[in-house]
Simulated scan of single mutants.
Amino acid sequence: MGTKKMKCLKKALLFISAVTVSAATAALPTASSASGPPRYTFAIITHGQPGDTFWDVIRKGAQAAALKDNVKLIYLANPTGSGESQLVTNVLQQHVDGIALTLAFPLAMSTAVKQAVSQNVPVVAFNAAGDNWKQMGVMSYIGTDETSSGMAVGDRLNAAGVTAALCIDQEQGAIQLEDRCDGIQKTFKGKLSTVYVPGYDMASAQSRITAKLQQDPAVGFVVTLGADFVPPALQAIKIANSKAQVGTFGLDPRAITLIEQGKLQWAIDIQPFVQGYESIDSLWLYKTNGNVIGGGGPLLTGPTFVTKENAAQIGQFAKQGTR
């Protein structure tokens, strides 16, 4: 083949290659916050209680994903199973393209979730689900294995030589909170008592913890199931003249400070920003590319123990409201 023909053939091959790459790239879904109307509308529905700052971080994550993917986001919350179930029904009537929700009260949520699935609306569970999400036809679960997290806490209590501890539950019946206390009980060799407090009434929470500490002076550790309950737990210990220490599920800037001061032994970070972000992004991936993340199992976001050793590193993100 002559030199001239060889050059022509190389140019043709380069052109074909460029067209092929360009076509393949164009076929792939791209995340963009570009101008233009949103292609999809996704609803995120939680059992968040008023005053619980944990859910603010969940929402930030969801909003970040919605902005990246250029989707319209509807954020709703109701602290009861029946209320959250009604919200699912409401957004189905609005013809949303996908739903991310929590399953803290799976029995109350089951009918509405199955209705969504029957209408071919993809559903992702996050934060709370137990082992019930697969039975409902939910596509995936994004969060932590709460029982395993509790078991890790039980191991820590054993290592610290604790013989009696309290588990402070602010939402009786919520499956993920029950799993945490049950997980502690599975591995903790001492006596564990669950203390139920009435939601986010901090004065009542402090009073109930104080009463329990006064009733049982052997309690050496208090585990709260939300970072907001650390201050009333610390105050209760002071009032009861107890020597108990405190650890918590959940993380916020105040918890970081208390860890650095030695007043809080540890906090379990379950990465709520990631839970909110991946819930919305996973719906976008499914709608645009047919992806189902998790491989049939949960997509775990924790737990990570935050202690004095890593508090400063993680604290910088907690202070900006994303941890």
Rank of each mutant, 00 (worst) to 15 (best):
P272L: 06
T3Y: 06
Y75G: 06
V88G: 05
C8M: 15
G98R: 03
T3K: 07
G262R: 07
L299P: 04
P106H: 09
M136A: 11
S35T: 03
I239L: 15
A129I: 04
L285Q: 14
G302T: 04
Y277N: 08
Q245L: 14
N291W: 13
T41E: 14
G137T: 10
L285W: 13
T322K: 09
D182A: 15
P232S: 05
A104M: 08
L213F: 12
G321E: 05
Q245K: 15
I237T: 03
I142A: 01
Q94H: 13
I293R: 14
A165Y: 03
K212T: 12
N78W: 07
F54T: 03
P38I: 04
L101S: 01
Q93E: 01
H47T: 14
V222F: 09
G161I: 01
A43P: 01
V71A: 08
A244F: 05
G83S: 05
K11R: 11
G321Q: 05
T53D: 15
T288G: 02
L251T: 03
H95E: 12
A116Q: 02
A129W: 00
Q176L: 00
D97L: 11
G276C: 05
H95P: 01
D69I: 14
I270W: 06
V153I: 14
I184W: 07
A27I: 04
A12T: 12
V117E: 08
V113A: 04
G48A: 13
P29C: 07
G199S: 01
G150C: 10
T304C: 00
S282T: 08
S118A: 13
D155F: 08
L76K: 15
D179A: 07
